[in-house]
């Protein structure tokens, strides 16, 4: 009987804790969702938790889409994302194949260089990186963020390196007996087997790049090169007094990621778990 009461109260604690957690997470964005359907007068005169008069008032969305430069931002973000992700996958898998499957003179040096690199967070080196990007003449072009997403973070190398260890070398040897070239072994045997690492890299990097503010803010300040983060940052200028419009913009920016997340949940979780325990 005593055990039963203990069990019940623990169960109750569990659900209450989770409910409180869920409410704390949901309330701040829900308020923004409500506000995005409110008119300016309604926004100023009602309290934040109250529901809007109508959930069909899309006026704010129209305003923010027409004047907020969102279409440009989504396009630029997509370009940067696609090129950076493909580049990350190619670089990560190629380096992992070269370092994971071959022994050569400089191997230790290269591994050491990557080890040093992982200890240099890119946020600390921006003061000098800025000069390099300027000297290369790519400042204020989409090349700047792409190059930095490819070169200033070496996480993908580690994810691939760790994963390639788990692919048995006998597979390479079998392919060699059949006369396959190293390149064929890479493209036809190794790369397909690296798929879990590839999905991990894509998910971690996609979230990081879509949410990154620092690099686009520093390197692509011009209007027509806006990405999602910088365009959101600029909302506070033209719509400064109209938080209901800003709210619509915020919702438009977080909706795509939430939808993608809900669809790809399983992969996102495993990506996060694989990527962190390096």
């Amino acid at each position: 009987m005593k055990g039963n009461i203990k069990q019940i109260s623990w169960n109750l604690t569990k659900y209450i804790s989770l409910l409180i957690g869920a409410i704390v997470v949901l309330i701040p964005p829900l308020v923004v969702l409500f506000s995005s359907f409110k008119t300016k007068i309604e926004y100023l005169n009602t309290d934040k938790l109250s529901l809007p008069d109508s959930f069909l008032n899309f006026e704010n969305y129209k305003v923010v889409f027409e004047q907020g430069n969102l279409d440009v931002a989504f396009k630029n973000t997509a370009i940067i994302l696609v090129i950076s992700l493909i580049g990350n996958v190619i670089i990560g898998s190629c380096v992992a194949y070269a370092l994971g499957r071959f022994d050569f003179k400089l191997k230790k040096v290269i591994l050491g260089a990557y080890l040093v690199a992982i200890m240099i967070p890119s946020i600390t080196t921006q003061v000098s990186t800025y000069g390099i990007i300027t000297n290369l003449g790519v400042n204020n072009t989409l090349f700047a963020p792409i190059l930095l997403y490819l070169g200033a973070d070496v996480l993908m190398i580690y994810i691939y390196l760790q994963f390639i260890e788990s692919i048995p070398k006998e597979l390479d040897e079998a392919a060699m007996i059949e006369g396959a070239s190293y390149f064929t072994i890479f493209t036809k045997v190794i790369f397909p087997l690296l798929a879990p690492a590839t999905s991990t890299v894509i998910i971690i990097k996609a979230i990081a790049i879509y949410n990154d503010f620092y690099i686009p803010f520093l390197y692509i300040p011009s209007e027509e090169l806006s990405v999602v983060s910088t365009v959101a940052y600029k909302f506070m200028g033209p719509f400064g007094g109209e938080w209901n419009v800003i709210c619509a913009g915020v919702i438009m920016i977080i909706i795509p990621t939430i939808v993608l997340f809900l669809v790809l949940q399983r992969f996102v979780y495993s990506g996060m778990t694989n990527g962190s325990v390096k």
Binding site: S229, V250, I253, I254, I258, Q265
Partner: peptide, 21 residues
């Protein structure tokens, strides 16, 4: 899903959400 969701949200969007909060 709910507890994880903030992590995938855009950082600037989060900053704006909490400016209101």
């Amino acid at each position: 899903s709910i507890l994880f969701m903030p992590y995938i949200m855009n950082s600037v969007a989060i900053a704006l959400i909490f400016t209101i909060f």
